[in-house]
């Protein structure tokens, strides 16, 4: 049944823009695809490695700005800017990640928060590079008329996102994924089994950051603009909430979380304070009542509603 569902979703994703064309829903779908990459990569950290990071928005931004600055100020084409963004983000993640793993628990989260704040301040103030509070304007779409349309860019994003999701899911199922989970569940035991927790943590951190960098790059080339607010602390919290909402440590959970949160964001886009108030309460409610996320309980609730015979057919 799972494979059937995945195939149906994939088919829907491929056919979707044919129905919505250049309209608003295609735009929404592109945004969701980009945020799904962010949530999935954060999930590798939170769900599978046991690292709570509040700096994913910063890596999203580092990717976005690297790519945007290269394209705007140096005329680097999109196809080179994306890997450059991934590389730059990975290098910075390596530089930050290695020392930060000396800390644990709350201290580790705080280091990520501090990094996020510093990154935001740099985005905001390095006027000659980032354009500061005015933002970086005129980031071009990739060359060729195909990518100028929303539909074209949608398929581009879809391919990138599917590649990322497939790669991350494959990684989770591989021996590396198992090692990450072993470290998450009991670091001392993993160490005793001969794994090097610090190496795996750094690997997961750098990988997640690089994916966020790619997402940032794809994002700024889509909206043709970069602004510090796209990548601030609240974006990090949003992503965190998306992963929590769907269920950290599951593959489908964060995707579900992104979908729900993005829909909420659209519905409440004129009421930012209401949305954030809601998100805050949701965060508390989730951690208190549903630390495993809302997707699994929802699914079992739905299953209980449907007579079992109909489920076995699908």
């Amino acid at each position: 049944m799972k494979i059937g569902l995945a195939a149906a979703l994939l088919l829907a994703a491929v056919l979707f823009p044919l129905a919505t064309g250049e309209g608003y829903f295609t735009h929404l779908a592109i945004t969701m695809l980009i945020f799904s990459m962010l949530a999935a990569s954060l999930n590798v950290l939170m769900g599978y490695t046991g690292l709570v990071s509040m700096a994913h928005g910063a890596f999203f931004g580092i990717g976005g700005y690297t790519s945007g600055i290269l394209a705007v100020r140096h005329g680097v084409p999109f196809w080179l800017a994306v890997p450059a963004a991934a590389f730059m983000t990975a290098v910075i993640a390596l530089a930050v990640g290695v020392p930060s793993f000396r800390t644990r628990g709350v201290y580790y989260i705080i280091v990520t928060v501090a990094f996020q704040i510093i990154a935001s301040e740099i985005f905001d103030n390095w006027h000659t590079m980032t354009g500061g509070g005015l933002g970086l304007k005129g980031i071009p779409r990739p060359g060729g008329t195909l990518w100028q349309s929303k539909i074209g860019y949608y398929y581009l994003t879809l391919v990138v996102a599917l590649t990322v999701h497939a790669a991350l899911a494959g990684l989770i199922r591989s021996p590396i994924g198992l090692s990450l989970m072993a470290i998450r569940d009991n670091e001392t035991k993993a160490l005793a089994m001969g794994l090097s927790p610090i190496r795996y943590k750094i690997f997961a951190f750098v990988l997640a950051a690089a994916v966020a960098g790619v997402a940032g790059s794809v994002y700024v080339h889509y909206v043709e603009y970069a602004h510090p607010d796209f990548f601030n602390f609240f974006v990090s919290v949003d992503l965190f909430l998306a992963v929590m909402l769907g269920g950290a440590g599951t593959i489908a959970g964060p995707l579900f979380g992104v979908f729900v949160l993005e829909m909420l964001r659209e519905v409440l886009h004129e009421f930012v304070a209401v949305r954030l108030l809601l998100f805050g309460i949701l965060l508390v409610a989730l951690i208190v009542f549903l630390p495993q996320g809302a997707l699994r309980p929802l699914v079992s609730y739905a299953r209980a509603l449907v007579p079992p015979t109909r489920l076995t057919k699908g």
Partner: peptide, 12 residues
């Protein structure tokens, strides 16, 4: 995480 939720909710 719960504390961050409280912070965001109260500020907003």
């Amino acid at each position: 995480v719960s504390a961050i939720g409280v912070l965001i909710a109260m500020e907003n």
